[in-house]
Simulated assay, not measured.
Amino acid sequence: MRLYQKIIVGILSVLAICIVGITIYGIRALDDVNSAINNISQTVNRKTKKRDVAVSIEDREPFSILLLGIDTGALGRTETGRSDSMMLVTVNPKKKQSTIVSLDRDILTDMLDGSTFDKLNHAYAYGGVELSMDAVEKLLDVPVDHYVTINMQGMRDLIDAVGGIEVDNKIDFTLEKVHVPKGKITLNGKTGLAYARMRYDDPEGDIGRQRRQREVVEKIVKKVLSMDGVSNYQKILKAVEKNSKTDLTWDDMLDIGKNYYPAFDNIQQEQLEGIGEQVNGIYYQVLGINELLTIQNTLKEQLELPTSSELAIDPQFEYSMNGFIGNQFYDDRLGNEQGQALSENQIIDSEEAYIEAPYTEEIYQ
């Protein structure tokens, strides 16, 4: 099939196509694509507070997109759920670079109601996509321009749709009766979902899981880019349209497919990681000032925005009863060891702490 017959379509979904415009081959696929776009399209009732003018994908401006993996859709889960996986992706076509920053779901985060600090992944349960975008935007101090969600079943279907992905698994484990052996193996949807979800057998816990999730994203993207033929893309479309939502328009997707393609060849991976603390008996990740500032500036550089010399802290939270800066950060400017020691001496266990934690901690793999 000749090049001029190809139709460029961007289908962005949270653990894969969310970073790349898919090339659909053949006019016959157009109806399928239109149907998929209609099914996954869902606008949000919010505007970024970090831009005076909305970003223009048509003009090839760098943009950000929040990827949310929702813990429903498979394993019998049908409730609203929480954002079990969160990544912020920035795409810069001029620099031909993309950045994926994994966000720990347990990060102690301002829920933006003036009184509640909770786990970052609880924002989705509190206020859906809109609050998730606002909370991440406040935390990272960069505009969150768009979003994509995908549930667990969508990830499983998507891996199957691309014919599986190859990984070098470092840990032999069994998750919910699904065994994933150690070594170089090809994962199907069932084993691939387990590979992306496992954390308790990983010495690095959720950090190790997030590393594997980023790996799955890249592997699927590469398979998508290498695929040819209408039949393959029809499988991908079916996987996406049943389990994903995005506020990107049809025109946005076309422009991403045509103009942003080179940026997906150079993907920089980052991990926003704090230290574990017990807050009123519940586990949280508390971020260090330097760690967060470094990630913020990395994203700002990718979005071609001015960087900052110090972390901006909301004045109303600058001082708190628990001794943490801004209720949610610890001072790591003295270095990792001293910062760690400082934090350990300030474990939050006071009823006076400016934190509400309405959820009972549940075990999610």
Rank of each mutant, 00 (worst) to 15 (best):
E310G: 07
N188E: 12
G21K: 03
V148A: 15
T90E: 03
Y124G: 02
A341I: 10
Y233N: 12
D201L: 07
L237Y: 08
Y359E: 12
Q302G: 15
S13T: 09
A357S: 14
E362V: 12
K258E: 02
R209E: 10
E344Y: 05
P358V: 08
R197Y: 07
G339H: 04
T360N: 12
G189D: 11
L108E: 04
D32I: 06
L248D: 02
I100V: 14
S85K: 02
P315D: 11
G257E: 04
M133L: 09
D52P: 11
T116R: 00
L272A: 03
Y4P: 00
N290S: 14
M87F: 11
R105D: 02
V142F: 08
G335F: 07
G154V: 03
I57V: 02
L3M: 04
L158M: 15
I65G: 01
G127D: 05
D202V: 00
L193C: 07
L112C: 03
L120W: 02
N280E: 08
I65A: 02
K170Q: 12
T90D: 03
I171V: 14
Q269V: 08
D247L: 01
K138L: 14
G183L: 08
Q271N: 14
I363T: 15
E301G: 12
Y25F: 11
H179V: 12
L237E: 03
V20D: 15
G281F: 06
G229T: 06
E61G: 06
G274I: 02
S98A: 11
D110C: 02
Y25K: 09
K182D: 15
L305A: 09
K119E: 12
L292V: 01
S226G: 15
S102E: 07
D331T: 04
V136S: 01
Q271Y: 11
V286D: 00
N232V: 01
Q213H: 05
D160N: 15
I267L: 06
M155S: 00
